[in-house]
Simulated scan of single mutants.
Amino acid sequence: MRLAFMGSPDFAVPALRALHGAGHAIAAVYCQPPRPAGRGQKDTPCPVHRAALELGLPVRIPARLRRDAEAQAAFAALDLDAAVVAAYGLILPPAMLAAPRRGCLNIHASLLPRWRGAAPIQAAILAGDAESGVTIMQMEEGLDTGPMLLREAVPIGPRLTTPALHDALAEAGAALILRALAEAPVPVPQPEAGVTYAPKLSKADAPLDWGHAAAALDRRVRALNPWPGTVFRHAGEAIRVLEAEALPGPAGAAPGTVLDAAPSIACGEGALRLLRLQRPGRAPLPAEAFLRGFPLPPGTVLQGG
């Protein structure tokens, strides 16, 4: 089948490799332009760009598509059977959505209609969902509103992190898009009930609020690492919490109070034991090693981030 592939981050790479490995003719790979990265701030191609070059596939990196008639005409000239889209990062205008004979198929990292939007993986963990999954969706102009072709659930275990769920969903999406192209399932409209949205995350989401329940903060630590991370402040430093676990806590302790040498921190309900921490500009450390250079004596009251 003659395809275009449109994606940018690591999540999209397994699908690109699967489509190429299955023998589909990938006429062009669309991805975000190189961005400054690393200490030298050199322009660095995104993961899909690097994978496409490795596979010998032609890459296109338009800065925009809407109101760009030339880019839209170039896409139409590819004479595609379908376009596969996975976390591309640009909105496709109606002319491009309609250009391929089978339209544009999106690999979305949730069980639609739950968690439409920009951060569905993190949202599922934050909410304490028992499962997430992948939906192959026929794209239309609305935000993740198109009819569904296939869905596959992935369980969310009690200690699952965003990186682990990300990788599981990326692999599931790669397998599912091959099935969708081969089987051409009948599109099913999304139900109107149960729609939720996962807004884009920012650094403003990083501070830990000790007034929340420890179980919610544990999910937050697992959901928001590696980015934007979760932090609290002490002695003028923003300390990153990379791993933690929720425990029962004593009644009446003020939220943010260090309860013991573990260290465990009193929360609005229960306590959060800190397992791995990082000071600014330093390496991540297990809590025991961290405390040797940055003590948190019992009775200390920690601030949010």
Rank of each mutant, 00 (worst) to 15 (best):
G103I: 11
G103Q: 13
P100V: 02
P100N: 08
L112F: 13
R101Y: 03
A98Y: 07
L105K: 07
P94E: 15
W115A: 02
A86L: 03
I91L: 15
P94C: 03
A99I: 00
S110L: 12
R102L: 15
L90Y: 03
R102E: 14
A118W: 08
H108K: 12
L97P: 07
L90S: 12
L105V: 11
A86K: 00
L97C: 03
R102C: 07
P100D: 04
M96W: 08
Y88F: 15
M96Y: 10
I107C: 09
R114C: 04
A99R: 00
R101F: 02
R101Q: 14
G89S: 05
A99H: 06
N106L: 03
C104K: 01
P94M: 03
P113R: 04
R102I: 07
L112M: 13
P113M: 08
L112T: 08
H108P: 13
N106Q: 13
A95K: 06
L111K: 09
H108C: 12
Y88L: 02
R101S: 11
P94D: 15
R101P: 05
C104Y: 05
L92A: 12
G89N: 07
C104R: 02
P93E: 04
P93V: 04
R116Y: 10
R114H: 11
Y88G: 01
R102N: 06
L105I: 12
L92F: 14
A99E: 07
A86Q: 01
A87I: 04
I91T: 11
R101L: 11
M96D: 08
R116Q: 14
S110G: 06
C104D: 01
A99K: 09
S110R: 04
A98Q: 14
I107H: 01
P100H: 06
A109Q: 11
V85G: 00
C104P: 05
